[in-house]
Design a protein around this nucleic acid. Structure first.
Lengths: 301, 301
DNA sequence: TCAAATTCATCTCCAAAAGTGATAGAAGAC
DNA sequence: GTCTTCTATCACTTTTGGAGATGAATTTGA
C-alpha cells in the first residue's frame, strides 16, 4: 500500500513511546494496545528501514546508537505532525490559518506588544506575520489581501470598503533640527516660512502617486522609511511632522526643536486617529477578532 | 487503528502531490494510484481533521486558505520524514548515525576544513558534531565515548587502547611578549633563565592532575583556553610554547618574540606529532573512515 | 453549439495491513 | 529455585485502503 518507503507516523509514535516508557509492554499499556502490536510495529519499521533499532541481546530491548538518533528524529517529525493537527484544530474553532498584520510606520508599536504577547499566549499555534512598509502600505496590503488586519492612518477619510476601528490618537508635531534656519527666525511660523524650506515627507514605495496630505509647498523630499527620514531630519535637511514616540529623545537632548506654527489649518490637524482596519468583505478570524478586542480593551483604560 | 488522530504520512504525501500536480487525477498518475484512491485519501484526511482542504464548488478542486497552510506544514513534515529515512539508509550502508569529533586546542583547524567540507558534500545527511575543550579533552572524550574520532597530541606516547594515525607535525615555538625581561637578557637562554619566570601552561579543565609535559620550574599559570592564554602572553605575564598558526601575526607585528633556548632537551622536542585517534574497540563508521582517509590524502601532498 | 475529454465522487470487491489474544521461552527479581 | 516480567510468534479477526467501474459535472475544442 504505502509505496513511498512504508514509513508511518504511527510507527514513529510507537518508537518514541517505547523510548519513553522503557519497554515494549509498557509502551503497549501506554498506547492502549497489546504488546504484540507494539512488537509487530517495531519489527515492520525495522524491516522496512533495513536497520536494527533495538538491541535484543538482553531481555529488555535497549536502543542501538542509530535507534537513539532516530528516536530524536522521530520526535521532530511528530512535533511537526502535532503542529499540523493544531492548525487544523484551530481552523475547526474558527481560527484563521495565519494572521497577517500590517502596520504603518507612523503607528507606534509599543501599545501593541502587550496585546500581541497575550495573543501568542492565547493562541500559541496561530502563525502571525507582521509587515511594515511605507506610508499607505498597510492599507494597500489589506486591498491586495496580503494582510487581514492593518494598523494605519486613513487619510483623508475612512474608505467605504474598509471596516475601521479607531484605536488611539497620534499627535504629529512639527519638528526641525536645532541648527535649522527655521529655528533662528525665533518667532511663530506661517505658511510662507515653511514653504521656503524643504519638507521631509513620508510616501508609499509602491506609491500610486495619490494626493499627499499635509504637504506644504513644493520643496519636497520623499522617504519610505521613517528611520531614514529621521536621519535627514537630524542632519538639518528640512522639517516635518513626527510622532512624539520617535522624536522625544531628540527633543530632550536638544538636537530637535518643536516648531511653533501659527496656522494649524494648513495641514492635517495635529491629532490624527489611528485605526485598526480590515476589508469589509473579509471578516477577521477568531484570532484577529480576539486581538482587536484585547487591543481596544487595553487602550480604553 | 490509528488512535492518535489518524494522520498518516501517506495522506500528507498525497496532499502535497495534489498541490504540485494540480489535480486529484494528476496526483494519482504521479503516485501510480487510481484517482479514487486519491479522492478517498483526501476525504479521510478532511474527515479526521474536521476541516475542508479543497474548495469543490468548481470542478477542479482548489486549496482553501487552511489547505494552503497545511500543504506547507505537510512539506515540513515530509522533509523530516525524508531525513529519518536518510539516516536509516546511511546506517544500512555502514554510516554512523552521528560522527562526533573532538579536537585539541593546539591542533590547527585550517588543514581540516577542506576535508570536512568534502565530508559534508559526500554524506550530506551525516550529522557531525565538533567539540574543542582544554588540552587532553579530546582524548578524554574518546574514552568516555562522547567522541568517536579525535585530533590531538598524545603525550608522552600513544596509549595502547587508542588507534592513532599521525597526521602532521606541529612546531611549538617558545615565545614571549616583546617587553618581557627574558627578551632583555639578549642571549641564549638556559633552564635556569626560564625557571625564573612564569610559564603559561595549557591544562585540562577536568584535569585528573596527571603529569604535565614540557613544564619547567614551579612558577606556573594554567589555562584551559588557548585564546585566553594568548591574552596573558601578549600582556607579558610569562612565556610559553605556541603553535605558529596562532602567534604568526604577533611575531610579524613585533608584539611577540621567539625565544632562543639552548637546551631543547628540557622540554618536548619542538616538533610534536598530531594524531587522529579512535578507541580500538570502537572502529570508525564509514563517515569517520572516509574523513580520515581524505584527510591523510590531503596532508600527504 | 455539441461532442469529446477530463475531472471528481461514490460504489463494490478484494487483498493486505494491523490489531487481538494466547502461548512459549528467556531474563531478572526475590 | 520460584515467580514475575518481558518479547517473539502464531492463528484469527477486523479494518483500512487500493483497484476498477460508473455517473455527473465541467472544460475543451472543433
Amino acid at each position: 500500500m504505502n509505496l513511498i518507503g512504508n514509513l508511518t507516523l504511527d510507527q514513529l509514535r510507537v518508537l518514541v513511546t517505547i523510548s519513553d516508557a522503557g519497554s515494549f509492554s509498557a509502551a503497549g499499556r501506554s498506547l492502549g494496545r497489546v504488546q504484540s502490536a507494539i512488537s509487530l510495529a517495531i519489527k515492520t519499521l525495522e524491516e522496512t528501514q533495513g536497520i536494527e533499532l533495538f538491541d535484543r541481546t538482553r531481555q529488555k530491548p535497549t536502543l542501538t546508537p542509530v535507534g537513539r538518533v532516530l528516536v530524536d528524529q522521530a520526535r521532530v517529525i511528530l512535533a511537526s505532525a502535532d503542529r499540523f493537527r493544531a492548525i487544523a484544530a484551530g481552523t475547526r474553532m474558527g481560527l484563521e490559518p495565519a494572521l497577517t498584520l500590517a502596520i504603518d510606520p507612523l503607528v507606534p508599536t509599543e501599545p501593541l506588544i502587550d496585546s500581541l504577547r497575550a495573543l501568542r499566549d492565547t493562541f500559541p499555534d496561530l502563525s502571525v506575520s507582521f509587515s511594515t512598509e511605507g506610508v499607505g502600505g498597510a492599507e494597500r496590503r489589506l486591498r491586495d489581501h496580503s494582510a487581514s488586519l492593518a494598523f494605519c492612518l486613513l487619510l483623508p477619510s475612512v474608505p467605504d470598503d474598509l471596516m475601521a476601528y479607531p484605536l488611539m490618537n497620534l499627535d504629529l508635531m512639527p519638528v526641525v533640527a536645532a541648527d535649522h534656519p527655521l529655528v533662528r527666525l525665533g518667532r511663530q511660523l506661517d505658511r510662507a516660512d515653511l514653504e521656503a524650506h524643504v519638507q521631509l515627507v513620508l510616501s508609499d514605495a509602491h506609491g500610486t502617486e495619490g494626493p499627499s496630505y499635509g504637504v506644504i509647498g513644493s520643496r519636497i523630499w520623499r522617504f519610505v522609511d521613517l528611520g531614514r527620514r529621521l536621519d535627514f531630519l537630524l542632519a538639518g535637511f528640512g522639517w516635518c511632522k513626527m510622532p512624539p514616540f520617535v522624536v522625544e529623545p531628540y527633543l530632550a537632548d536638544g538636537r530637535l526643536v518643536k516648531l511653533d506654527i501659527s496656522d494649524e489649518g494648513i495641514s492635517p490637524t495635529g491629532t490624527l486617529p489611528v485605526y485598526a482596519a480590515h476589508v469589509r468583505g473579509r471578516p477577521l478570524g477568531r484570532g484577529g477578532s480576539w486581538l482587536l478586542d484585547d487591543l481596544r480593551q487595553r487602550l480604553m483604560k
